[in-house]
Design a protein around this nucleic acid. Structure first.
Length: 309
DNA sequence: CGCCAGGTCGGTC
DNA sequence: GACCGACATGGC
């Protein structure tokens, strides 16, 4: 673990397309990873996913266990994307360890094998999850896209023109009115405050990312619009804090149903339980449970939570 | 019209 | 500490 071996990346060039082949360590499923609610700017095209990472337009596709990357300019970028996708992590080992914890988790992992936990850019992730509060995934994506198109740099990419996600100073320039116009609603205040904080330096995301989990979380909780759940999402999806266990309505429903026999459980109790049950793999467990809940028993749980209690 | 969405905030007790 | 209503917006 200490001498981090980089992800395996090779150049490829065929009649159909050229770019890089990324070879994941263990199973990988792009669909659930990119479209499962941790990232919000990936667009599904026919047979591939188009997105913007580090201000560069990219396409990803999958055949079997190989991931194809098109549009990257250099091997350096390809390696960055492989790390963004967490392909260097031994997913097989993570899944095996989680499967051994209990029967529910075994089923959840089996249902979404290859679901990776991304390493996204902290700034964009910070804004995305402020927007996520009491919001739906399609709407979160729409607001993120509005911000990019209205206030981000426009550029020519290998697949046409696109918009980068706005920098902190670009959002500060947009002001409350501009952000409001992007349909951010009551999250506008939090977005603008975060932008100002990062711009002026009293919110240092790099520094926060280097702190341990409890300390980093405490820092994020200072910001308006960031509570326990949003902080945990930022820490998990962009700062490598894998002990974070974000508790939202879906996690609450599925954990209460499958682990607490439909009894009353507070969010704090759930967080403590997850820490004890899954330790430093809690974040991965969270991803599998979230996906499991939404994919297979969403309707069933919704009915019960209305009819019950 | 109603309720819900990867919640948080500012009041209460 | 815990509990509760308000808060924009869009989908069903």
């Amino acid at each position: 673990m200490s001498d981090q071996e980089g992800p395996r990346v090779e150049r490829f060039n065929t009649d159909a397309k050229e770019g890089y082949i990324l070879r994941p360590e263990g199973p990988c499923d792009l669909e659930s990873t990119l479209c499962g609610g941790q990232a919000f700017r990936w667009k599904k095209m026919d047979g591939c996913y188009q997105g913007v990472v580090l201000g560069k337009q990219l396409r990803l596709s999958q055949e079997g266990d190989s991931v194809f990357l098109e549009g990257a300019e250099s091997e350096h970028d390809a390696i960055f994307i492989a790390k963004y996708l967490a392909l260097d992590l031994d997913q097989g080992a993570i899944e095996r360890e989680l499967e051994s914890t209990d029967d529910v988790m075994r089923r959840a992992v089996a249902a979404s094998s290859g679901l990776r936990t991304l390493r996204q850019e902290p700034w964009e992730t910070l804004i995305a999850f402020i927007i996520s509060a009491n919001n739906g995934v399609p709407n979160i994506s729409r607001v993120m896209e509005n911000l990019a198109e209205m206030y981000g740099d426009r550029a020519e990419g290998p697949f046409g023109s696109f918009s980068k996600f706005p920098s902190p100073d670009q959002l500060v320039d947009a002001g409350h009115e501009g952000v409001w116009a992007c349909k951010a609603g009551f999250r506008t205040k939090g977005i603008c405050e975060a932008a100002r904080g990062v711009l002026e330096g009293y919110v240092d995301l790099e520094s926060i990312a280097s702190m341990d989990y409890p300390e980093a979380k405490q820092e994020l909780l200072m910001l308006h619009g960031i509570g326990e759940k949003v902080a945990d999402c930022i820490l998990l999806f962009s700062m490598g804090k894998y002990e974070a266990f974000p508790v939202d309505v879906w996690i609450e429903r599925i954990v209460r149903h499958l682990y607490f026999d439909d009894g009353k459980v507070s969010h704090k109790q759930i967080r403590r339980w997850a820490e004890a049950a899954f330790g430093n793999l809690a974040g991965f467990a969270n991803q599998f449970l979230f996906n499991y809940g939404r994919k297979f028993i969403a309707k069933q749980l919704r009915k019960e939570s209305v009819a019950g209690s």
